[in-house]
Design a protein around this nucleic acid. Sequence first.
DNA 1: CACCAGGCAAGCC
DNA 2: GGCTTGCATGGT
Length: 297
Amino acid sequence: MEIKYVNGCAVLKNAEDFKLRHIFDCGQTFRFDPVPDPLGGGETAYFGIAGSRALLISEHKGDIILHGVSEREFCGFWYDYFDLGRDYGQIKRTLACGDEIMKEAAGYGGGIRILRQDLWEMIISFIISASNNIPRIKGIIDRLCKNFGDKYEYMGRTYFSFPSAQKLAGLCTEELSVIRAGFRDKYILDAAAKAAGGELSLEYIRSLPSAEAKAELMKIKGVGNKVADCILLFGLGRTDAFPVDVWIKRIMEHCYFGREASVSEVSGLAHEKFGELGGFAQQYLFFWARGSKIGVG
DNA sequence: CACCAGGCAAGCC
DNA sequence: GGCTTGCATGGT
């Protein structure tokens, strides 16, 4: 992949396996939204926030442009964030080999990349995701950051960072109620208290094998099997994790089982078929299922 | 109005 | 172990 730095932008020339709509609309992050093309060409563009950094990113004639990003910032953060060291073409070929379903799904969302996001942000974001819909998850996270994050400026815009565990641990449920998280407010405070108090060490969790890391994460109230898998996949880069939500369950039942199946049956088959590539398969299937309404009704 | 949304915890057996 | 129910809020 060729990278150039022009006019204060980092530019990925002829970017392959990289499509903004696929990356930001496949449900892995809740803090990026479409904006008008800053170059006025009517192409796709997004503005979003990762931890305490903001980014305006757009497509332009097959290139990807990261606006206001220096070489230092690109190499020090965004390269890893977008998982640019990984060959997604190879992953798609491996998954599609002998599997017509995956061939279809990986073709549909071929520009997906699994973002390497902040662990703490993923813990709270996916606690909020439980029994919720994506627009409202985004709204709750937005209010969380606006009320309790720190204020920053980037390219003439004001934005707010994701609040730290220490900041959230100092709140009571009444103060947190402004974000309208519903029954999840007590789970957020439990996670914050454990993280701020040292009972939950994110660096320790990071050092553990996946199964043990998952068990540690599930000690947090509001973190069950599915939320823990999302945290492993999106916050810890454990790409073998295969989160089974209603959409994945529905599409796997429809395409692979031809009948209703339990969550453990679904994860069992996923492990068998996709193995170490489970996380990628999950993202292709999720984006495909939602976009084409496969298995619904 | 009922029903559902990237589930989970607690209470049953 | 597996199965049911309540849960805050907002949209259809």
